[in-house]
Write a protein that binds this DNA or RNA. Structure first.
Lengths: 205, 205, 205, 205
DNA sequence: CATGAATGAGGTTTCATTCAT
DNA sequence: GATGAATGAAACCTCATTCAT
């Protein structure tokens, strides 16, 4: 651990490590401080408490992710047709790839956020995310249902679809360490998801 | 809490409640014992430790689930063609419904197992399950690829598909309390998943 | 410290010592446990927390004091005349002596309760006591005012008189260690207070 | 909080507030500094430590009180007769009123000093005051005993009388916020106390 | 079978204080 | 004069576990 780094930075690094290893709940502030080569009191100079430590650790990447997702949704809503084409450089695939790249730039952070945050305020970040996405897909589904004169899929279905979309990213993060491979995988997944999505609006079934 | 129940039973009941409320990690053995109207020592007569308590609590339902899944897989492997037809009473839909019913009979247990077990040996039961399922789908994919003369989907894809299949059940459990509704939802989901699955083996894409 | 005493007793003894020395707030549970020759956990087996420790320590003597005071008030209210005679074995002097003896039997406890309880739920026990006593003196004053056709002393005056009465006992406890001497002193004080009290109801002033 | 006030002043103000709210012991220097808009280091430039902060805060008012009390005593000792007359503008009543006014001019400070100083060097200021006053009353008692050819009241009695005299002021401060009302109350109290005092030297009892 | 007592390590947090800059 | 960082000890409390009875 670099000796000349500033304490706050050292603490954040050490916290990242500890959260990653033990999860938020089992993570010990004492251990975090010890590994950072700093006393307990120092931690409480920079952070209000354990929760705040996690908050400050994930804050920026989380915001980055949210803004990327939102801007993608905006783009999607401004398309003429709600039908989503499936091609290698479709909007969705590009967006998915961008998000993957971003997540892998903050690999550890998102690992923590998405799989090690039980017991913290982020413990249901996945659900909260899903709720946000669901709203978007609900609107999209409405438009599509109109375009094709077909009944909208049920709420539950849309909620679930939102969920597996997020799970797709989580799964990637936990099973594929290489960014490039991950980016390739996400393409297949998006295609799979889009086919299913479009299938929901095909005339007969 | 029935006074004449045996201690072991009372402890298991109390543990179920506590694990459900606080999750495995935050669950307090003291609280479990207190709510069971029993002292700490009693717990340690029936159970080796905290982990063993959880183990014994989920053991049976878990075995039940596994055996049901396995027997379904066996059935599926014995079909003549690996192509899975999508109809209301298709093998898969019937199996899915059966599993849903079984899970809802042990609602609390599976809730704990699938969403409240972080920190215990079951914390990645989902992944372990997925690994088991993956094996099956891998074989299935091989057969399908042969039948259609098409390249098998990649390992990652198959793994992911296994995962979302499990996630589908988890999602159900956490978002739909009513069995009958859940059974109906799972049908739509299976259809969705099967379409996607079959799509992977359609000639061109 | 007797080795064969039971832990709870040893803890209470040690706590008494520590509270007496440092006051409730500065008292350290660690120190209490150490001096009792017991680990921290043991304390929490018998007591819920620091507050409960104090509570259990003072509970009985406090109840004893309250019941003695109340039964004295009852006696006083059942007298024919509200005029209080001042003689060596008057009701009040006997009551005061009884209370002194009782307090000195639990010398340390009342010392803690009355002068070392800042920061605890007993920190304004004096005021609470005064409020109770005030009620009694208010009734008494009403009767006296009627008897003599004189205006009742103001609320503030009665409240203050209640206060100094309690302070008298506190003062005793903190300045006179010998019971017998204390019992003698309280007599003079009661005489002094009663003269003042009676003076409030004398025709002209 | 005035921005242009000097740091020392701001700290003293903030400390006053904090001591008043939480008492000396529970008062947090961090909070004091934060509320003063100043860092910890600044505090330690002006004050040696927590104790010194309190000391400097109460210094002046305390001196003011002491000098007023002392000059009153001097006056009293220079009277021809040691008998204290009880009239509306008697020496004692005027002195008591003056002291009340002075204390209410520094209301917060005396509140702290007399009721919130446990844990500090002033925690037994009351007793120390009483000791000072006692000395005076002892002399007075001697003169009176001589004048009337009566035995002096015991030391304990004189000490206690000194105490309740101080307690009278404390009680005022904690139960009556309005100066004018307080000034009126103190008159009644002084009368009460003086009657008692004089009573101690009346021939028979 | 079960109790009740006790362990001991560890948890998060707060605090007054110091000191280089 | 004042900042901001850091110390280090101690605070209360909780926990899973053990064991004599």
């Amino acid at each position: 651990m670099a000796e000349d780094k500033e304490t706050r930075e050292k603490l954040l690094d050490s916290a990242k490590q500890e959260f990653l290893e033990k999860g938020y709940m089992k993570a010990s502030l004492r251990t975090i401080c010890r590994n950072a080569g700093v006393t307990t009191g120092a931690l409480y100079f920079f952070f209000e408490d354990k929760e705040d430590l996690l908050k400050q650790l994930v804050e920026e990447p989380l915001k980055g992710l949210i803004s990327r997702v939102e801007s993608h949704f905006l783009e999607e809503m401004n398309m003429e047709s709600a039908v989503i084409s499936i091609s290698d450089d479709s909007l969705d695939i590009r967006a998915a790839r961008e998000i993957v790249y971003f997540m892998y730039q903050n690999y550890d952070i998102f690992q923590i956020l998405l799989t090690k945050s039980q017991g913290s305020i982020y413990e249901d970040i996945t659900s909260r995310f899903a709720d946000g996405i669901e709203e978007h897909y609900d609107k999209l589904a409405e438009r599509l249902a109109d375009e094709f004169g077909i009944k909208k899929p049920g709420h539950y279905m849309i909620h679930w679809l939102s969920h597996i979309q997020i799970d797709a990213f989580i799964h990637l993060l936990t099973h594929e360490q290489d960014v490039e491979k991950a980016a390739r995988q996400i393409e297949d997944i998006v295609v799979y998801l889009l086919s299913g999505w479009n299938g929901l609006f095909s005339p007969k079934r």
